[in-house]
Design a binder for these strands. Sequence first.
RNA 1: GGGUGCGUAGCUCAGUUGGUUAGAGCGCAGCCCUGAUAAGGCUGAGGUCCCAAGUUCGAGUCUUGGCGCACCCA
Length: 1181
Amino acid sequence: MFKPVPGSVSFPKLEEEVGAFWKASEIYHKSLAKREGAQPFVFYEGPPTANGMPHPGHCLTRAIKDLFPRYKTMRGYRCERKAGWDTHGLPVEVEVCKQLGIHSKEEIEAHGVEPFIQLCQKSVWRYMQEWERMTERLGFWVDLEKAYVTYHQSYVESVWWSLKNLFDRDLLYQGHKIVWWWAQGGTALSSGEVGQGYREVADPSVFVKFPLLDDDGKQTDTSLLVWTTTPWTLPSNQFAAINPKLSYCNVFDEETEETYIVATDLVETLEGKLKRPLKKVAELDTSGLIGSHYRPPFDCYYDKSRSDEWKVVAADFVTTDSGSGVVHQAPAFGEVDYDVLVQQREVSGSDIPLINAVGPDGKFTDEAPEFVRGRWVKECDKDIIRNLKERGLLYHQEQYLHDYPFCWRAEDDPLIQYPRESWFIKTTAFKDAMLENNQQINWLPEHIKGGRMGKFLESNVDWALSRERYWGTPLPIWECSSCGRQSAVGGYDELEAKPNVSGFEVWEAAKKKNPELPEDLKIHKPYIDAVEFDCEHCGEGRMQRVTEVIDCWYDSGAMPFAQWGYKGQDIGEAKERFESQFPADFISEALDQTRGWFYSQLAISTMLFGEDRGSRDEGRESDASPRPAPPYPHPFKNCIVLGLMLSEWYEDKKDAKKLYLTEEEAKAACGKKGFRHAVGKMSKSKRNYREPNEIFDRYGADALRWYLFANQPPWTSIRYSEEAIKDSIPEFLLRLWNCYSFMVIYANIDEWDPAEECGVRNSECGMLDASVFAKAESYRPVFDRDEIDRWILSELNRTVALVTERMDAYDNFGACGAINEFVDALSNWYVRRSRDRFWAKDKRATDKLDAYWTLYECLLTTTKLIAPFVPFLADAMWQNLAGVFQEGARSEGPGASANEPSSLDPRSSILFPESVHLCDYPEPHTALVDEELSERMALVRLISSLGRRAREMENLKVRQPLSKVEVILANTRQQAWLEEHAGVIADELNVKAVEYSDQPEKYVDHQVLPNFKLLGKKLGKLMPKVKAALDQASGSELLANIRDNGRINLSVDGQEIELLPEEVEVRITAKEGYASANDKGVVVVLATELTPELVAEGTARDLVRAIQDTRKEKGCEFTDRIEVGIVSDDETVLAAVDQFADYVAGETLSDSVKLGEIAGVTPIEITHGDVTVKLYIKVKK
RNA sequence: GGGUGCGUAGCUCAGUUGGUUAGAGCGCAGCCCUGAUAAGGCUGAGGUCCCAAGUUCGAGUCUUGGCGCACCCA
């Protein structure tokens, strides 16, 4: 016996039970144990940070990350899923600062780095529980207990090892980076922080004369007209940039009597500003101009160095949108300006110094012109302009409105771009290798490859690795205090073995003071900073660690090896784990990770394990890359790039602040039309989305998962639409549940039990498929069963094949579509059409047993099919459907089985998979797929639907039988099919006969159209005329032509044209005046005349429905028997009872159906058409 | 300013190598069916396929140029 299925089901409750069962029975571990030794399917978890609340967007990533590993596991692969946590970085520090109520680095230092990082370490786990609960509740199977954590010592050491490798290969170097600098706070700001602080301000916009020098270094009478909006950077000028693609000219200004060089296109604009004409003297050869020398506006550096360093350079970022087409370059204060310097260094082969007249405090240094020294740069703009004016170098000045960033913590402080010493990884040396690697990755959607990722790689710049912060992986570089030479350290033990090493006592003291401190902190600031040792280079100084930590993106990008603590070992577990789990078959994150985790992984892997390691001959110690060096792609082969998650809500039209998450709620609060629909970014403050936990409680994880998988390809932007999540219950989950519930109800009534049928209860029964079922005598070969059985099994196997194909292509959307279509066919055609067979009296009728086996097999296979998608529902169904094979050996239900002893060997005490997740994914039985049968059944369904449409239009209820339906088909091949299915159609449409009209002309018009696809090439330009000719000719004549001659002959434009039958398409349309409907080459015509017999039968059916309703209202069991009495003075009712009493009795489980009252029973009044009938129904107990 | 993606029904989206009646779901209006049904089915209204030009016998689909939106970068 199956466990009875409750009348109404709560999916959230069911899921809690299934989840508890998984936990207690260790199903996840068993699913791995089962695949011991199998081919691995490698998955990498992109580590989230747990110091923020999990967000609906994380549900999507985690759901997709769960889906494919589950699928691949069922397909026979072994898929480990090691969880991971990203724990370092500025966001953590900011959280802690908030907690402490401090901002700047000075304040952190004042508070003490040691207590600060201890707080950071704790803060990392703030929302751990919420994350674990969300992960579990969503059904994301991942090994949380063995999660990798980026601050753990083994992880940090692994990162160190990789950095040492890069350092030793001369790929790690120090340089300048231009950052957005908060001078007052003494810190750089991240791009996110900068983005928050943009404000529109008016800055000066000045045109300054830079006199050109002749070959002897003498000033000429021609000046570059140079534009800038940051006059304070002029003392640090190093170049003037022009765009060689623009044209430039000399203009003579009669007022100043000087000649200037400007972009030709800007002359007119300039004239407008000056309100006087300029005289164009000559077009200039830009290539000749490039390299020309000029005199910079201030001499503070000019005097001290070689004058030929100030020159005109080419730069394509110069535009004619504003300014003069000649742009002032101060490499210290602009990223693009700095790039120009780097280029010039390369071109000249000399180390041109970076000129910087400003200190880190934002004040001019003593190198600056005297009148600005020691002053905040932004305050000096005016004085600098005045000074230029006095010296005759200022040509024009105005105000310029633009957006400029201010500090988000001190909003009066403008930020400045400022050079900081920084460590870089020479990723540019690997640009081609990364591009090649990228080329081999299967990106979904595909456009990421050549688009966002490809373009990003094309414009690769060296990775600025270091951060002047506290909570992060310390940069493992030690520098000699005496000779200044540097060494990289690849591990803690390596450090301990250094000559005369000291400083470990700082950690030991801290640990002694607070034994609770995690060991992992010893490799962090400030403890690690105390460790120093004798210089290996000069033997005199002490080696001390540089102060920086590294970019936490490097941490996460190192996870392919760092998760195992791999440090290039030749043997051992770390090596084996790493090598067997590299590269990943599958990863998935959202689009924003393109420049984040996707890039950091790709870059690190290409540099460390690449085919082309950018071999360099001047490596410091060794230039060997670590093993392995597998072919591209690595470290991941397939990557689903998820779209952004948006939210959907409803706003009160009168007050947009009032918002509702479902239309229902909005309607209740604002009336039917008092609200508007909105889609947009999720916002915590707006609260325009429902927390994941609440979604789980209201609708369940499966509803959410199905919504995420089935409603759109995962890379389009996905709305977190509560409405749509809710809809996935009736549209899919409940529909399937109803089929399952139907099966269980009737199987139990009929005492049909597959295990008993097979005689294999509690013994070996494999994966519960046809090979086991065939042991049952009642399990007949599919080919002997009813057509509808063969049909649904054909659909099932077609679906299995399609789903497998789609999932192998990482197309969950397509797979879900196929599953959904199948469940719809099962529910709305198979079960509905087969109900009579389940209700048949003879419990052992072959036809009935066929139906049970067919439905059972469909359901069981479906549970396996949907297991990766909706794992809870699938397992709940499986427990009951398959559970009968284990009766007695199992306790009741998933929740109750928590007491079972746990065993990691799925075969030891369990004879069949105790969970659907331990099953193999179904294989399609192609022999059972019958495409023609699918097509036929589709036609039958189409005819039924057309028939109902015709009834609808004539207002003829389906309950009223009609004498016949006539069907006209455009495709004569289909006629024979129909004859075989007449019974089904007659039944569906409630007609006595299905006929094929011998006078189609009476009901339909024929239209012959050219088959454009076939004829397009043959006819070319004649096409429209042929179409017109066919239009004009009589359809039935053309048809007769085809019938008699096998072709159509036309004369078009004096040309004889012959059309073969396959070159035309025949359409039929129903004529007016009949109860008919048509579509896709089918016309259905209903006979509408009613005889008294038909009316009586219709009435009888109406009575059946009324009695059934009453049974239901009275709460009858399906098997309760009743007595029926009917009182009416209507002739048709009397006739109906007279003629169809047996029929009514049979349909309603009545022992008797008679005219007249039943004593002691309160009658129920029903209406049939416009007459009233009294029903007496007595339930027999 | 540059890059990438996207503009199809009131909303959210499908739409095969270009083929002539552009589909689905939701919503709206109306109806039907129902002893598996918190279901299901049918019908209706609703479309300048963002605009323009081009290629072609034929363009939602291809090309070019606009316009608009989103994201990333500057």
